[in-house]
Nucleic acid binder design. Structure first.
Ligand code: MN
Ligand code: MN
Ligand code: ZN
Ligand code: ZN
Lengths: 134, 134
DNA sequence: GAGTTATTTTAGAATTATTCTCAGTTGATA
DNA sequence: TATCAACTGAGAATAATTCTAAAATAACTC
């Protein structure tokens, strides 16, 4: 809990609740998911607080913003390098920990300064596969 | 021009203008980019027509929807398999044609049905690199 | 512990991208 | 040339996110 102190943000009860919800969370929740979960403990919690906190965390590397879902942003408290599998049916997002060491040949990167990459694998998750079977 | 006929959509002047704007376009435009460009020829063009046409094209593989930009959807008339480089400063998106043959080990994909993948390379484009130099 | 203050919270309004509505129009087919 | 399902377009509706500003408070100082 006290490792949140290193984030250099004012530790309010609302923020601690958000951090606690995010800690170890592998569901890649949306802002609304977070809002709903934390509102149970803090009925006065507002969306602005969720977004403000996510913004503060983002700036400090405490959370990553995923652009994977076309409807809403998703947040990932694990900011170590990894990739994702996305189920196109239920929108669930699953971590893929594997370093692919992708290199971009000079003739393709024409002067770009490449600082990173991320891979998205698409398909159907096990649950949705089962569900669609006859 | 007549190859648009194979798309099986009613060919209206508005749609032809959109198709002509998209044809060979490598800028990965947003709906607004398309709207603004086509409105020059069709002052009565509406956003609904742009979105309707993009939806029809999407369903027929005539255009791909990119979730790369966190502000708005981007559209790619090239639906052949390729990846992208995204400049985090100016948001420009550049095609990367290279087949990386990414395989997902069984122990990682746990029953998923993986149908495809896409890679995003991040960094600074040549123009933005120059611009930020002293 | 009390005082100070910059930061944060919150309800609600504002913004923005996208989707919807529906009345009028039109491309495609026969 | 007549028919009609599909399309257009102005504007309204929706939904995610951001903004506003007044009240509250964490953290720092004494
Ligand atoms: Mn993840
Ligand atoms: Mn492309
Ligand atoms: Zn699924
Ligand atoms: Zn750039």
């Amino acid at each position: 809990m006290q490792r949140y102190r290193q984030l250099q943000i004012k530790l309010t009860p609302q923020r601690l609740a958000i951090l606690s919800y995010l800690n170890g969370n592998k569901t890649h929740p949306s802002a609304e998911d977070i809002y709903k979960a934390v509102k149970k403990q803090f009925p006065t919690m507002s969306f602005a607080t969720v977004y403000n906190t996510l913004e503060a965390l983002k700036n400090r590397g405490g959370v990553m913003e995923l652009k994977i879902d076309d409807k809403r942003k998703r947040y990932d408290p694990d900011s170590t390098k990894h990739h994702h599998f996305i189920c196109t049916k239920c929108r669930s997002i699953v971590d893929i920990f594997k370093d692919y060491k992708l290199s971009l040949p000079d003739e393709l990167k024409k002067g770009f300064d490449v600082t990173g990459n991320s891979i998205e694998f698409y398909g159907t998750c096990r649950k949705c596969k089962k569900g669609s079977e006859q």
